[in-house]
Amino acid sequence: MDSPSDIGVSRRGLLTSGAGFAAVTALPASASNKEPVAPMETPPALPVQLKVNGKPAELTVDTRTTLLDALREHLHLTGTKKGCDHGQCGACTVMVNGRRINSCLSLAVMHEGDSVTTIEGLGTPEDLHPMQAAFVKHDGYQCGYCTPGQICSAVAVLDEIKAGIPSHVAADVAASPAFSEMEIRERMSGNICRCGAYSNIVEAIREAAGRRQA
Protein backbone atom coordinates (compact mmCIF):
# COMPACT_ATOMS: atom_id res chain seq x y z
CA MET A 1 0.00 0.00 0.00
CA ASP A 2 2.17 2.82 -1.30
CA SER A 3 -0.55 5.20 -2.32
CA PRO A 4 -2.58 6.92 0.35
CA SER A 5 -5.64 6.45 -1.82
CA ASP A 6 -5.43 2.75 -0.95
CA ILE A 7 -5.99 3.48 2.67
CA GLY A 8 -9.65 4.33 2.49
CA VAL A 9 -11.38 6.80 4.72
CA SER A 10 -9.56 6.92 8.00
CA ARG A 11 -8.26 9.78 10.06
CA ARG A 12 -4.70 8.92 9.22
CA GLY A 13 -5.53 8.46 5.58
CA LEU A 14 -7.19 11.84 5.35
CA LEU A 15 -4.27 13.51 7.02
CA THR A 16 -1.83 12.44 4.35
CA SER A 17 -3.91 14.13 1.64
CA GLY A 18 -1.84 12.43 -1.00
CA ALA A 19 0.94 15.00 -1.20
CA GLY A 20 4.57 14.92 -0.30
CA PHE A 21 3.91 17.56 2.30
CA ALA A 22 0.75 18.05 4.25
CA ALA A 23 -0.28 19.99 7.26
CA VAL A 24 -1.13 17.76 10.17
CA THR A 25 -2.51 18.69 13.53
CA ALA A 26 -2.11 16.22 16.26
CA LEU A 27 -4.25 16.27 19.38
CA PRO A 28 -6.73 16.88 20.64
CA ALA A 29 -8.50 14.74 18.10
CA SER A 30 -11.88 16.43 18.59
CA ALA A 31 -10.74 20.02 18.29
CA SER A 32 -10.70 21.77 14.99
CA ASN A 33 -7.54 23.53 14.02
CA LYS A 34 -7.93 26.91 15.66
CA GLU A 35 -10.47 26.27 18.37
CA PRO A 36 -9.01 27.05 21.80
CA VAL A 37 -8.64 24.11 24.13
CA ALA A 38 -10.90 24.37 27.15
CA PRO A 39 -9.01 24.91 30.40
CA MET A 40 -8.55 21.79 32.42
CA GLU A 41 -10.13 21.66 35.83
CA THR A 42 -8.52 20.12 38.84
CA PRO A 43 -10.08 16.73 39.38
CA PRO A 44 -11.22 16.00 42.90
CA ALA A 45 -8.95 14.30 45.39
CA LEU A 46 -10.55 11.68 47.59
CA PRO A 47 -9.50 10.02 50.79
CA VAL A 48 -8.99 6.28 50.81
CA GLN A 49 -8.10 3.93 53.63
CA LEU A 50 -6.11 0.83 52.84
CA LYS A 51 -4.42 -1.80 54.86
CA VAL A 52 -0.99 -2.30 53.31
CA ASN A 53 1.18 -5.16 54.50
CA GLY A 54 -0.88 -5.30 57.66
CA LYS A 55 -0.63 -1.62 58.50
CA PRO A 56 -3.37 0.96 58.00
CA ALA A 57 -2.61 3.60 55.37
CA GLU A 58 -4.72 6.71 54.94
CA LEU A 59 -4.25 8.59 51.70
CA THR A 60 -5.81 11.44 49.84
CA VAL A 61 -5.31 10.77 46.16
CA ASP A 62 -6.18 12.18 42.80
CA THR A 63 -9.02 9.98 41.58
CA ARG A 64 -6.91 9.11 38.53
CA THR A 65 -4.15 7.63 40.68
CA THR A 66 -3.71 3.91 40.17
CA LEU A 67 -3.20 1.55 43.07
CA LEU A 68 0.31 1.07 41.63
CA ASP A 69 1.17 4.75 41.84
CA ALA A 70 -0.44 5.08 45.26
CA LEU A 71 1.94 2.37 46.47
CA ARG A 72 5.03 3.65 44.68
CA GLU A 73 4.62 7.41 44.80
CA HIS A 74 2.49 8.00 47.91
CA LEU A 75 3.55 5.19 50.22
CA HIS A 76 7.05 4.90 48.72
CA LEU A 77 6.66 1.14 48.44
CA THR A 78 8.69 0.97 45.25
CA GLY A 79 9.13 -2.79 45.31
CA THR A 80 6.02 -3.01 43.15
CA LYS A 81 7.23 -2.14 39.64
CA LYS A 82 5.82 -0.20 36.73
CA GLY A 83 6.81 -2.02 33.56
CA CYS A 84 4.07 -0.99 31.17
CA ASP A 85 1.25 0.73 33.09
CA HIS A 86 -1.16 -1.11 30.79
CA GLY A 87 -1.69 -4.54 32.31
CA GLN A 88 0.60 -6.18 29.77
CA CYS A 89 3.62 -7.23 31.79
CA GLY A 90 2.67 -8.20 35.35
CA ALA A 91 5.52 -6.30 37.07
CA CYS A 92 2.96 -4.48 39.21
CA THR A 93 1.34 -7.63 40.61
CA VAL A 94 0.21 -7.33 44.23
CA MET A 95 -2.30 -9.24 46.30
CA VAL A 96 -5.55 -7.55 47.24
CA ASN A 97 -7.57 -9.39 49.84
CA GLY A 98 -5.49 -12.45 49.07
CA ARG A 99 -5.94 -12.43 45.27
CA ARG A 100 -3.33 -11.18 42.81
CA ILE A 101 -4.11 -8.25 40.54
CA ASN A 102 -2.27 -5.93 38.19
CA SER A 103 -2.18 -2.83 40.37
CA CYS A 104 -1.70 -0.58 37.33
CA LEU A 105 -5.19 -1.49 36.09
CA SER A 106 -6.92 -0.50 39.28
CA LEU A 107 -7.57 2.94 40.72
CA ALA A 108 -6.52 3.51 44.31
CA VAL A 109 -9.93 4.91 45.29
CA MET A 110 -11.55 1.60 44.34
CA HIS A 111 -9.81 -0.08 47.24
CA GLU A 112 -11.42 1.50 50.29
CA GLY A 113 -10.92 -0.89 53.19
CA ASP A 114 -8.96 -3.41 51.10
CA SER A 115 -6.03 -5.33 52.40
CA VAL A 116 -3.02 -5.08 50.07
CA THR A 117 0.09 -7.26 50.25
CA THR A 118 3.15 -6.11 48.33
CA ILE A 119 6.58 -7.64 47.93
CA GLU A 120 7.72 -5.66 50.96
CA GLY A 121 5.05 -7.40 53.01
CA LEU A 122 6.25 -10.90 52.16
CA GLY A 123 9.72 -10.71 53.65
CA THR A 124 12.79 -8.62 54.24
CA PRO A 125 16.40 -9.10 53.13
CA GLU A 126 17.15 -10.42 56.61
CA ASP A 127 14.05 -12.59 56.82
CA LEU A 128 13.07 -13.80 53.35
CA HIS A 129 9.68 -15.36 52.59
CA PRO A 130 10.19 -18.98 51.43
CA MET A 131 9.29 -17.95 47.87
CA GLN A 132 11.86 -15.15 47.96
CA ALA A 133 14.48 -17.53 49.31
CA ALA A 134 13.66 -20.05 46.58
CA PHE A 135 14.07 -17.37 43.90
CA VAL A 136 17.53 -16.54 45.31
CA LYS A 137 18.54 -20.19 45.50
CA HIS A 138 17.40 -21.04 41.97
CA ASP A 139 18.51 -17.72 40.46
CA GLY A 140 14.95 -17.06 39.37
CA TYR A 141 15.72 -13.48 38.33
CA GLN A 142 18.38 -11.45 36.63
CA CYS A 143 17.80 -7.71 36.39
CA GLY A 144 15.30 -7.94 39.23
CA TYR A 145 12.68 -5.64 37.76
CA CYS A 146 9.94 -8.20 37.10
CA THR A 147 10.93 -10.15 40.20
CA PRO A 148 8.58 -8.69 42.83
CA GLY A 149 5.66 -9.24 40.46
CA GLN A 150 6.81 -12.80 39.70
CA ILE A 151 7.10 -13.56 43.41
CA CYS A 152 3.73 -12.06 44.34
CA SER A 153 2.15 -13.94 41.45
CA ALA A 154 3.86 -17.17 42.44
CA VAL A 155 2.65 -16.95 46.04
CA ALA A 156 -0.90 -16.28 44.81
CA VAL A 157 -0.73 -19.06 42.19
CA LEU A 158 -0.02 -21.69 44.83
CA ASP A 159 -3.03 -20.42 46.77
CA GLU A 160 -5.17 -20.52 43.61
CA ILE A 161 -4.27 -24.14 42.98
CA LYS A 162 -5.01 -24.96 46.62
CA ALA A 163 -8.35 -23.18 46.35
CA GLY A 164 -9.26 -25.29 43.31
CA ILE A 165 -9.41 -22.44 40.83
CA PRO A 166 -9.09 -23.92 37.32
CA SER A 167 -6.76 -22.66 34.61
CA HIS A 168 -6.58 -22.78 30.82
CA VAL A 169 -4.57 -25.99 30.90
CA ALA A 170 -6.97 -27.81 33.21
CA ALA A 171 -8.26 -30.85 31.36
CA ASP A 172 -11.34 -30.91 33.58
CA VAL A 173 -12.41 -27.60 35.08
CA ALA A 174 -14.63 -29.39 37.58
CA ALA A 175 -11.73 -31.37 39.01
CA SER A 176 -9.32 -29.94 41.56
CA PRO A 177 -6.22 -28.68 39.77
CA ALA A 178 -3.04 -30.51 40.66
CA PHE A 179 0.38 -28.94 40.93
CA SER A 180 2.30 -29.42 37.70
CA GLU A 181 4.91 -27.49 35.77
CA MET A 182 2.43 -26.77 33.02
CA GLU A 183 -0.07 -25.39 35.55
CA ILE A 184 2.65 -23.12 36.89
CA ARG A 185 3.75 -21.99 33.45
CA GLU A 186 0.20 -21.27 32.37
CA ARG A 187 -0.74 -19.39 35.53
CA MET A 188 2.52 -17.41 35.55
CA SER A 189 2.26 -16.35 31.90
CA GLY A 190 0.97 -12.90 32.79
CA ASN A 191 4.33 -12.07 34.32
CA ILE A 192 6.88 -11.34 31.61
CA CYS A 193 10.59 -11.77 32.34
CA ARG A 194 12.58 -10.38 29.42
CA CYS A 195 15.81 -11.62 30.98
CA GLY A 196 14.31 -15.06 30.44
CA ALA A 197 14.59 -16.60 33.89
CA TYR A 198 11.45 -18.70 33.36
CA SER A 199 13.08 -22.11 33.65
CA ASN A 200 14.63 -21.12 36.99
CA ILE A 201 11.46 -19.43 38.22
CA VAL A 202 9.49 -22.64 37.72
CA GLU A 203 12.12 -24.51 39.75
CA ALA A 204 11.91 -21.91 42.50
CA ILE A 205 8.13 -22.17 42.65
CA ARG A 206 8.30 -25.94 42.69
CA GLU A 207 10.66 -25.81 45.65
CA ALA A 208 8.53 -23.28 47.51
CA ALA A 209 5.53 -25.50 46.89
CA GLY A 210 7.41 -28.34 48.55
CA ARG A 211 7.56 -30.34 45.36
CA ARG A 212 10.52 -32.30 44.16
CA GLN A 213 11.45 -32.59 40.54
CA ALA A 214 9.08 -34.98 38.84
Binding site: K82, I119, G123, P125, E126, L128, V136, D139, Y141
Partner: peptide
Amino acid sequence: TDRIDGPLKTTGRAPYAYERH
Protein backbone atom coordinates in the same frame (compact mmCIF):
# COMPACT_ATOMS: atom_id res chain seq x y z
CA THR B 1 27.19 -18.64 44.00
CA ASP B 2 23.87 -17.03 44.90
CA ARG B 3 23.80 -13.39 43.80
CA ILE B 4 24.81 -11.08 46.61
CA ASP B 5 22.16 -8.60 45.46
CA GLY B 6 19.50 -11.32 45.56
CA PRO B 7 17.94 -10.49 48.93
CA LEU B 8 17.50 -6.84 47.89
CA LYS B 9 16.04 -7.68 44.49
CA THR B 10 13.65 -10.37 45.71
CA THR B 11 12.27 -8.17 48.48
CA GLY B 12 11.81 -5.07 46.32
CA ARG B 13 14.46 -3.11 48.21
CA ALA B 14 16.85 -2.54 45.30
CA PRO B 15 16.17 1.03 44.14
CA TYR B 16 15.90 1.62 40.39
CA ALA B 17 16.31 5.01 38.71
CA TYR B 18 12.71 6.23 39.09
CA GLU B 19 12.46 5.15 42.72
CA ARG B 20 14.87 7.51 44.45
CA HIS B 21 12.61 9.00 47.10
